[in-house]
Computed example of a mutant assay.
Amino acid sequence: MELDIAAPAGELTRALVDVESVSGGEGPLADTVEKALAGLPGLTVDRDGDAVVARTRLGLPSRVVLAGHLDTVPVAENLPARRDGDRLYGCGTSDMKAGVAVMLRLAATVPLASLAQDLTWVFYDNEEVAAARNGLRRLAAARRDWLEGDLAILMEPTSGEIEAGCQGTLRVVAALPGRRAHSARSWLGDNAIHRAGDLLSRLAAYQPRAVVLDGCEYREGLSAVRISGGVAGNVIPDRCEVMINFRFAPDRDEAGALAHVREVLAGYELELSDSVGGAPPGLAAPAAAAFVAATGRAPRAKYGWTDVARFAELGIPALNYGPGDPNLAHTRDEYVELALVDEAERVLRAYLTAGA
């Protein structure tokens, strides 16, 4: 497939959306992106699996990394893309092919001589599935030098706002034991599901912390997200399990977050299911401060976890900034406002060429 990456960003978004790229099936789109970038002068283009990385080597004093994932969630009868007024509908429009389109158009249309800093473009695979398959995770482990930079801008959907850092997240499972019996003789048993009452009451009464970092307020949350128990309609259950999710501010590390959950739920047997740390705002970094100034937007905290955390682990300040609406991600009626796509291109173009 030929892709005109110099086309207007809205048209380019539509072309990208129409190339189905559900997680694990990004190969054809990665091929197309690689071919388009390889045809541009002054870029070094590398590939690892279905991740494509392009870099300038101008010897400028700083480097900015623009990153976005190529994959989408499964299609929900929302392909091909369709335009309705100023909106473009289709799978991946918001999350995050509009952001990818902006990245590609900038690569094609910003003259190298106008750049104020060197640039790296990272297009990666398998963001929407298990972390073990994440293409950026793979690059960080095996191709660390490809990701070097003074600032990373992850073009996740933010409705054109700057969302700094991200929350960490962990899940634990509380196992509540009981004693099985026939429900007709319930007094002979000990109902494990009933034992969940105190645990759920503690969670309902929990007062989450709010913490301000670099002017951004991160709100935490400790919530039961799943409960299971029972084996039959006439049996007193002897086991109940409650899964609990803790979304924590990036001033806590994973160990501290787990210790806090264990303290709140003292007396319960807790098994850690999964955990990943957050990312600090990083707004004090000169490159981040310059980007904030270029947008004229007041940064806000990122609620949720994103791959900015992977850059933070590498010591690279990272921000979320993209034209899509995060509330529309993964929905059947997903769409992007085309005006926001154009605005993101304008803002990034101005920032990347400022002072050149």
Rank of each mutant, 00 (worst) to 15 (best):
G278T: 05
V17F: 07
A113T: 15
A51H: 11
R332V: 13
C216R: 03
G27T: 14
S21A: 15
S275N: 03
A284H: 10
D48W: 12
G189M: 11
D95N: 15
W146T: 07
A298W: 00
H182R: 11
V264I: 12
W146S: 07
A339I: 00
G160F: 00
G267D: 09
A293T: 10
P74V: 05
A38Q: 15
V64W: 07
V211W: 00
E156H: 02
I227W: 05
D18A: 08
D274M: 11
P157C: 01
Q167E: 14
G304F: 08
T72H: 05
E156R: 01
I5W: 09
C216D: 05
L270G: 03
P177S: 05
Y89F: 15
D86K: 08
A289D: 06
K35C: 12
L328K: 14
E345Q: 00
D4T: 09
L37G: 01
W305A: 12
R226T: 13
R105W: 04
I153N: 06
I5H: 05
A284L: 08
S186T: 13
G92M: 03
M1S: 15
P208A: 05
V235D: 11
L270Y: 01
E217C: 11
E156L: 03
R297L: 02
A141C: 01
P237F: 09
G160E: 01
S114H: 11
V308L: 09
P237W: 08
D86R: 14
S275A: 13
G315A: 06
G304A: 04
A175Y: 04
G296T: 04
T306A: 06
R252E: 08
D333N: 10
N78I: 04
A108I: 04
T306Q: 11
A140Q: 11
S159D: 13
C166A: 03
T13K: 13
C240H: 09
I244T: 05
G160W: 00
A175D: 14
G197C: 10
G59Q: 10
R346H: 07
H330M: 10
K302H: 07
R144W: 02
P317E: 02
C216G: 04
P326D: 04
V53K: 09
A76L: 15
E11M: 10
P237Q: 12
R63N: 06
C216Y: 03
G27F: 09
D48Q: 14
L16I: 10
D18G: 02
A350G: 14
D274H: 15
R346A: 14
L58M: 13
A152D: 10
A354D: 14
F311T: 10
R55E: 08
R105Y: 03
A354E: 14
L199F: 07
D238S: 11
V235F: 09
N234A: 12
P281Y: 00
P28K: 03
A288W: 01
V65S: 04
A113I: 08
D238M: 03
V73L: 12
L60Y: 07
S228D: 15
G165N: 03
P326R: 05
A249C: 05
E271H: 09
D4G: 02
R252K: 12
A175N: 12
R82Q: 12
G282T: 01
R180K: 14
G315R: 09
E148S: 14
R202Q: 10
S228G: 15
L60S: 08
D95L: 02
L328E: 13
A224C: 12
D251W: 05
A285P: 08
D214M: 02
R332F: 01
N191I: 12
E26M: 13
N320T: 05
V122P: 08
L176Y: 06
